[in-house]
Design a protein around this nucleic acid. Sequence first.
DNA 1: GTCTATAGGAGGATAGAC
DNA 2: GTCTATCCTCCTATAGAC
Lengths: 202, 202
Amino acid sequence: MAGANTRQQIVEAADRLFYERGFEATSFADIAGIVGASRGNFYYHFRTKDEILGAVIAYRLSKTKEMLDGWESSAETPAKRILSFIELLLINQTKIMAHGCPVGTLCNELAKLDHVAKDDAAKLFNLFRDWLSGQFAALGRGTDADTLAMHILMRSQGVATLATAFRDEAFVRREVDEMRAWLAAQRPRLSETPAPVSDYDS
Amino acid sequence: MAGANTRQQIVEAADRLFYERGFEATSFADIAGIVGASRGNFYYHFRTKDEILGAVIAYRLSKTKEMLDGWESSAETPAKRILSFIELLLINQTKIMAHGCPVGTLCNELAKLDHVAKDDAAKLFNLFRDWLSGQFAALGRGTDADTLAMHILMRSQGVATLATAFRDEAFVRREVDEMRAWLAAQRPRLSETPAPVSDYDS
DNA sequence: GTCTATAGGAGGATAGAC
DNA sequence: GTCTATCCTCCTATAGAC
């Protein structure tokens, strides 16, 4: 319904359902049920289901960029910005326990389907990776910024997967605290003066 | 073909395809193609696809128990046994980069489908969790053994997810090295004498 | 225990009226 | 730009012969 923005409504409904149920498990009828349009009309806006997937990935990329830009301006220091990323696990905790991380689960599903768009979905990870890398560089870790970015991204994914399987809030809180402690231990490091860091002190 | 063990052949073929392609994306025809039996015959052995899933989960539980028992007898110390778990990421690296972790991806898919068997699949995680917890307890970490078990399980899942998305061997090696270093830093800890540990020194 | 044949339904996609 | 009607394929599941 509602003219020219039907396309956008389809994308947003698909975005939600692809996350909650998965790409394959979501049918046109499911999306149509949310949008309130007929299935037939979908093919005016998208020729195939894969085209909807492409639009959903593009939409997520744009939303993610917005979020990262928001963190950039709302937090004053690189450390606080990285903290925004870490605490996303708490903010989205309920959804994550029900459906996992939107990025990780989509990449996993598309990898299994050997879908043409699997590398496009991985660009969502690259967005976080590059942004985190920039923050670690700003923190004075120019040489290993990307390694640190991948490390914290890895932890976030691990917590999300186990949060879905165990639905254990205490576990999530504990691991978020560990990540905060790990972050606090990351100090500017020059190649000639490696600083001692401590991670797991609980 | 082959009488009474057709059931087992179905389970093993389904086990492989559920891992490689996912549960929903695997059809009876796909399984039949591997086993070399007709689709119709499947319903003599299993009444529904969900029953095949149940049998696959039971099969994986039993295979996992075997693997853990094997580590128990082949490695002499708790630390070496935990190392066996960590290095599974290297042993299965190629498969993980193509299809993710069999446990994590199945749990994620079933959670999204809100499938009745999702908690049964999570028992696979519990098997690792309890076994790892026992090893950490034997390492002298009786009070926080389960916390440590969940932490290393979390890391393993995070590495698997990013390995699938990025297919970056160097990343996997690096994180496995980090996990080894983390493990080496875990010392027996009595409640009154917390020991200093270091984690992230690379 | 295995087969062929087929029911019954859902999904993606198309055609054409309005 | 949206709708209804329809095609075709694939899937799960069943019936019944061998």
